[in-house]
């Protein structure tokens, strides 16, 4: 078997957004890395904090306004004005979640459990935590620590490491 000369050894993923697709992109990539035996650190900041906040993590939405990739079922264009009607965003988000569940994608909290079970580490950004006036107890138990970006970069050293911003 041809071995890669410089295999990926560690990924450090930063998630700064809180929509379903942004959070799941982060979780799938993080869990995928853990599954491959790649050391994994995830840093949630700004609205990304919703993904690890106990109160918010089950209520993530996908944006129906300002989302040009948004389409009707069947592929027809989704008029932006529709997305502004109350309840539409919630309905669309619910549909997204049910489609993901059909693919056996876990909920956010279970995904975090899976990542840490395999040795991945989850961090919250200190600056954003202070900005949103959150405390350690507001977070899911999988959050290892609240750290500064400098601390996070300190965890990102070593050959074969990549930093990914989702």
């Amino acid at each position: 078997m041809e071995k890669e000369q410089y295999p990926l050894k560690k990924v450090c993923i930063i998630c700064a957004k809180g929509s379903i697709e942004d959070v799941y992109a982060t979780l799938v990539m993080a869990n995928g890395a853990v599954m491959e035996g790649i050391e994994t650190k995830v840093f949630f900041t700004f609205f990304g904090l919703d993904a690890i906040t106990t109160k918010q993590m089950k209520k993530l939405h996908t944006a129906t306004v300002g989302n040009p990739a948004m389409r009707m079922p069947g592929g027809l264009a989704f008029p932006t004005i529709l997305g502004m009607i109350p309840g539409v965003e919630a309905g669309v988000s619910k549909m997204m979640k049910s489609q993901m569940a059909a693919l056996d994608m876990p909920d956010v909290d279970e995904f975090l459990d899976m990542i840490t079970a395999g040795g991945g580490e989850i961090y919250a950004c200190k600056l954003a935590v202070e900005m949103f006036k959150l405390k350690k107890e507001d977070f899911n138990e999988n959050v290892k620590d609240i750290i500064t970006i400098g601390d996070f970069y300190g965890l990102c050293g070593g050959q074969g490491t990549q930093i990914i911003f989702t």
């Binding site: 869990n31 599954m35 056996d104 876990p106 279970e110 459990d113 899976m114 079970a117 395999g118 040795g119």
Partner: peptide, 20 residues
């Protein structure tokens, strides 16, 4: 059936941490 880590976690044999 698809082989997933999550499926193993629900197998009743080991949890995901145990699998790792």
């Amino acid at each position: 059936e698809a082989l997933t880590i999550r499926g193993v976690g629900k197998s009743g044999i080991v949890d995901i941490k145990g699998f790792y």
